[in-house]
């Protein structure tokens, strides 16, 4: 029974089946499966998808489809972890989002998916996120990394605003900041005081590991 649920959940993620992933996550909770084991299986599944994307066997719609399925199951399992007080192992906690005024989600979603696959705990805030929302989330989740995306030249300066706000709230030194997106360059990242920049999603994962020394 346990393996049936766990294998089913992995399959649902790999087959991009959002509904099935959510249902199996609920069943896992009902059947009192170890939530850490379930989480681990989900991470394995998303890693397989991420690796296939990296090899060029899978494409963006597949990656995002798998991410959607993962997202459907994740809150259910996280809730269970919290309830049982189990201790979740992760490389670190990431808060991610696309900055205010910008509604482009693709790059950010790619990075979040691959970070999850790598073993980070990722809180994807979505798009059009205001500085105060980022700050609030960093505080709430006790994040190790903030990952911000901006596709448009007009919205890139918004990343600077977030960093300034973090300084004002005294949170800047608690968190490593990585930035990316079409409008961002290495120089810009340095200029606004980010800790790192990478133009590609797989590169962003390596960067995240480097930033927290793992």
């Amino acid at each position: 029974m346990d393996t049936e649920i766990i294998e089913g959940l992995k399959k649902a993620i790999k087959e991009y089946d959002t509904e099935k992933a959510a249902n199996l996550a609920k069943r896992a909770v009902e059947e009192k499966l170890d939530p850490l084991k379930v989480l681990n299986a989900m991470t394995v599944a998303i890693r397989e998808v991420g690796d296939a994307f990296g090899r060029g066997d899978l494409w963006l719609p597949d990656l995002v489809g798998a991410a959607d399925a993962l997202q459907a199951a994740m809150p259910i399992i996280e809730e269970e972890i919290k309830r049982t007080g189990a201790k979740r192992e992760s490389l670190g906690t990431v808060v991610a989002g696309t900055v205010f005024g910008d509604i482009h989600s693709i790059g950010k979603t790619m990075v979040c998916t691959l970070l999850t696959a790598e073993g980070f705990k990722v809180h994807d805030l979505g798009v059009n996120i205001k500085a105060e929302q980022f700050v609030e989330a960093i505080d709430k989740y006790n994040a190790d990394i903030l990952a911000m995306s901006a596709l448009m030249t007009m919205t890139a300066p918004e990343q600077k605003k977030v960093i300034e706000r973090l300084k004002k709230e005294g949170l800047r030194d608690k968190v490593k900041i990585m930035v990316g997106g079409g409008a961002i360059t290495e120089d810009f990242a340095r200029e606004i005081g980010a800790d790192g920049y990478d133009p590609t999603a797989p590169g962003a994962v390596k960067l995240a590991r480097k930033l927290i020394g793992k």
Binding site: G56, W59, L60, P61, I106, G107, M110, G182
Partner: peptide
């Protein structure tokens, strides 16, 4: 069309 590799 969406470039399904890079997302651009």
């Amino acid at each position: 069309p969406q470039n399904m590799r890079s997302g651009s």
